[in-house]
Design a protein around this nucleic acid. Structure first.
Lengths: 221, 221
DNA sequence: CCACCGGCTAAGCGCTTGCTTACTATGGCC
DNA sequence: GGCCATAGTAAGCAAGCGCTTAGCCGGTGG
């Protein structure tokens, strides 16, 4: 039991030592091989300890996964909230959200992979908790895009689907980022541009007395 | 459940019976719980057979995964090749590729999840083989976008990154599609629009004697 | 009628798993 | 020094794992 700090989320714990080492080793192992392919011996060994040491600092292997997922989701949600809360209107908020979201996933692809692809291994209760955080993130992005459309600065036929696409773009970066040599900033910047074009309103609106065309007027051939 | 095949590629075998049932059960189980959390008993049981029956029709659990991954990737590659080979120029080809790619991943999210998220469980040799197919798909999309940029019908600062984004959009659909009530066609159509806007050249080119501005002229605020 | 053969299974082998137990070493405090 | 709490370990348990073995069963050809 030991310290039992009520665990804020991860290793801001008293000794930044063994517990944090186990946490870090679990992140690496879960990301590299998946939760179920990782043994408690793997984790303890990578942290330089005997198999039983894991249970001195953590209740179970699943609790480690829960800790990682919780911390990761809280950080992502906070990042999104800051982007939206900083003001400046939907355009600036979406730019910042996409930039920060992508940069975060490129800078932390290992954690992000665990956070996004290992959730099936959580207990039902923990799953529900994490799913609520994911839902909050999704709602935030949906509302941001919806607000922009209402304000006339974005144009997209279905804001919910577009929100799904924006989140997809960001999350999936973690899957392939470290196979590339690209810098996190370069990818983030590029993605801000892509999303900006995706949702751009057709014209800067020189005339809004007459009803604007409902988007979808792009000429392709 | 019983048969549930619907898969074109994998079991072109003599009896479309036990072998195909095991294959289908493996797809379901790998997608739902992951490869390592799935036991050979799970698969055989879901196929209505005893544990040992799996080994009458397949060499190992990993061979089943390999079969699934191979079939899935071949189908996706073929779909991309058809879109590009159908002619009509880069714009039409990209429209078709995105539409078909997204529709395929929405119609077969279960297979697609295995195909994209369980590759770490393959043996190194099988991994290499699958990675070659993925690389072919990626090259195809990169070249298509690159060609469009050269032809002046697309504009994007980094075609390789944009290709990564396009593939991300399509692949990630499989992760969330069946939590939604959206139709595959609706998602596909929407995504064709999103990608079209992402890569659209700035103007339909009414005047090409003067050099066109090198993209990035979007007014935001 | 029988020998055969492929599909299928009951039983189980050797090994690994997550986790527990019983114990030792260490260091601060009276 | 005596004491206890804490961090850590060696050993091991019950359960479950992938896969094999030996043999049954029913249909088919001679």
């Amino acid at each position: 039991m030991a310290v039992m700090v009520a665990d804020v989320n991860a290793p801001p714990d008293v000794p930044p030592d063994a517990r944090a080492r186990l946490y870090a080793a679990a992140v690496q192992a879960f990301a590299a091989q998946g939760f179920h392919a990782t043994t408690t011996r793997d984790i303890a060994g990578a942290a330089g300890m005997s198999p039983a040491a894991l249970y001195v600092h953590h209740r179970s292997k699943e609790e480690l996964l829960h800790l990682i997922a919780l911390g990761g989701h809280r950080r992502t949600l906070a990042l999104c909230q800051e982007a939206v809360g900083a003001g400046g209107g939907p355009v600036r908020a979406l730019d910042r959200l996409v930039g920060d979201f992508v940069r975060h996933h490129a800078d932390n692809p290992t954690t992000a992979r665990v956070v996004n692809y290992e959730l099936a291994a959580l207990t039902p209760q923990h799953r529900v908790e994490i799913e609520a955080l994911r839902s909050a993130i999704q709602t935030l992005v949906r509302d941001l895009i919806g607000d922009g459309v209402e304000a006339g600065v974005f144009a997209t036929p279905d804001p919910m689907m577009t929100a799904a696409a924006v989140l997809s773009l960001g999350i999936d970066v973690a899957r392939w980022y470290d196979e590339t040599g690209w810098s996190a900033d370069a990818v983030a910047e590029h993605y801000v541009g892509l999303v900006g074009r995706m949702v751009a309103a057709p014209a800067p609106a020189p005339d809004l007395t007459t009803a604007p065309p409902p988007a979808e007027e792009r000429d392709r051939a």
